[in-house]
């Protein structure tokens, strides 16, 4: 468990970090909380020539009110997401998902932005962020660029962040008053999701007025269960109606087969978990 040798830089500001990145060439990795990168380097599955540690850039941490949205620093830890009062009030789905990440040690080191840029299909943060229609704010030498969540996740461990760019903040719209639930399915407590469903539901007058459903680990990227969302809109607040809508959860998915289950099982789980997530989110 000894990584290959690498150069290391720990800039104090985003501007400085961008400069370091520009000089470092293309064999460089950004270090956020290190909960994925360090193990991968120790296993020598990655051996970057240079590691740029973002840990000293204070401006990248914290959650702020930004009008109709929350502005979350990329270096905000999972633990901070779980315990932040603004998130609890406006996007509790994020806290629910972050609470299922690994164990307390990892949640105190691992970061929101790091998990999103890592883009592990089985990671728990991408699907809620996608369901919430968040906007990713990327800093580059040429200035700032904004990318919608729908365009951010591009494939296995691949995002819209270009070489030389740094994810600085994630702008998450407020869903104040919506019901939420992150339904995660694992075999043991400390495990990546086999499948998980991120659900937010707005109930109005005994029916579901709006629904946003994100799926974890049902493809190489997080997915929106749009067919379920559409079927839920206007549906009565009954288990039967929710179950009927949730039967669409497997549509458009392309899950992997592995030791935890094959694609057919995952599609089935997506349906069951969607039903369960929406039932809780809708307050049934």
């Amino acid at each position: 468990m000894i990584p290959s040798a690498f150069d290391y830089a720990a800039p104090a500001t985003v501007a400085e970090a961008l400069g370091v990145l520009a000089d470092a060439g293309d064999d460089v990795k950004l270090l956020a909380g290190g909960q994925s990168l360090i193990p991968v380097m120790k296993l020598r599955l990655a051996d970057p020539a240079m590691v740029v540690d973002l840990g000293r850039i204070g401006e990248l941490s914290g959650v702020r009110d930004d009008g109709d949205a929350l502005l979350i620093g990329a270096m905000t830890t999972h633990h901070e997401i779980v315990t932040d009062p603004l998130i609890a009030e406006h996007v509790p789905l994020l806290a629910m998902a972050a609470a299922t990440v690994a164990d307390p040690q990892v949640r105190h080191r691992g970061t929101f932005g790091g998990a999103l840029v890592h883009a592990d299909p089985a990671g728990d943060m991408p699907a809620p962020v996608l369901a919430a229609d968040a906007t990713f704010i990327l800093a580059g030498l040429d200035g700032e660029r904004r990318v919608a969540a729908a365009d951010f996740f591009q494939g296995y461990f691949t995002t819209a962040v270009d070489d030389g760019e740094i994810l600085t903040h994630i702008r998450v719209p407020k869903y104040t008053g919506w019901g939420a639930r992150y339904e995660k399915f694992t075999r043991v407590a400390q495990q990546w999701s086999i499948v998980a469903v991120a659900a937010m539901v707005r109930v109005e007058g005994g029916t579901i007025a709006e629904a946003r459903i994100g799926l974890t680990n049902m493809a190489s990227t997080p997915l929106r269960a749009t067919a379920v969302e559409q079927a839920l809109v206007g549906a009565p607040l009954t288990r039967e109606a929710i179950a009927t809508a949730s039967a669409h959860a497997g549509e458009g998915t392309d899950p992997a087969s592995d030791l935890n289950g094959d694609a057919a099982y995952r599609r089935h789980l997506a349906e069951v978990l969607t039903k369960r997530a929406v039932i809780v989110a809708a307050g049934l």
Binding site: F185, R187, I194, N260, G261, D262, Y265, H268
Partner: peptide, 8 residues
């Protein structure tokens, strides 16, 4: 007896 095996 994994969930996948039980379900299968």
């Amino acid at each position: 007896c994994t969930p996948a095996r039980v379900w299968a």
